[in-house]
């Protein structure tokens, strides 16, 4: 995945069973963002792999003032890359469950 300067990681062990998982997002390199992020804390949230899209969450983060509107695509892409990796890993490790 391309280095967007925004890091997204699992905030819990993934056992492949739950559709909603906890993720943690923080800015590693503010210079890669167009706007100035509110603060460099780690933002933890729950994401439903089946019902939600990374764009929904990115927009909610912008609405909540964490990021500037001009960075919504970078934030969405960062979340999308991590979600894709989680789904790829689930397919490989727990093919039957999926």
């Amino acid at each position: 995945a391309e280095d967007t300067g925004v890091r997204v990681e699992l905030a819990e062990e993934d056992h492949g069973r739950k559709s909603s998982i906890a993720l943690r997002l923080w800015v590693e390199d503010p210079k890669k963002l167009k706007g100035k992020p509110k603060d460099n804390g780690a933002i933890e949230f729950t994401f439903d792999l089946e019902k939600e899209t990374p764009d929904d969450v990115a927009q909610e983060m912008v609405d909540s003032g964490f990021f500037h509107e001009s960075d919504v695509k970078i934030v969405a892409k960062s979340i999308r890359d991590r979600v894709a990796l989680i789904q790829w890993r689930r397919e490989r490790i727990w093919p039957m469950i999926q």
């Binding site: 923080w26 390199d29 603060d39 460099n40 804390g41 933002i43 933890e44 909610e60 983060m61 609405d63």
Partner: peptide
């Protein structure tokens, strides 16, 4: 505590905590 919580109007909770120093890329 150094955790703050923001709830978006759509209902999602965002919990903000300090990023561990070790995870911040050297600027």
């Amino acid at each position: 505590s150094s955790f703050t919580q923001v709830v978006h109007s759509a209902g999602r909770r965002f919990i903000v905590s300090p990023v561990p120093e070790s995870r911040l890329r050297e600027q």
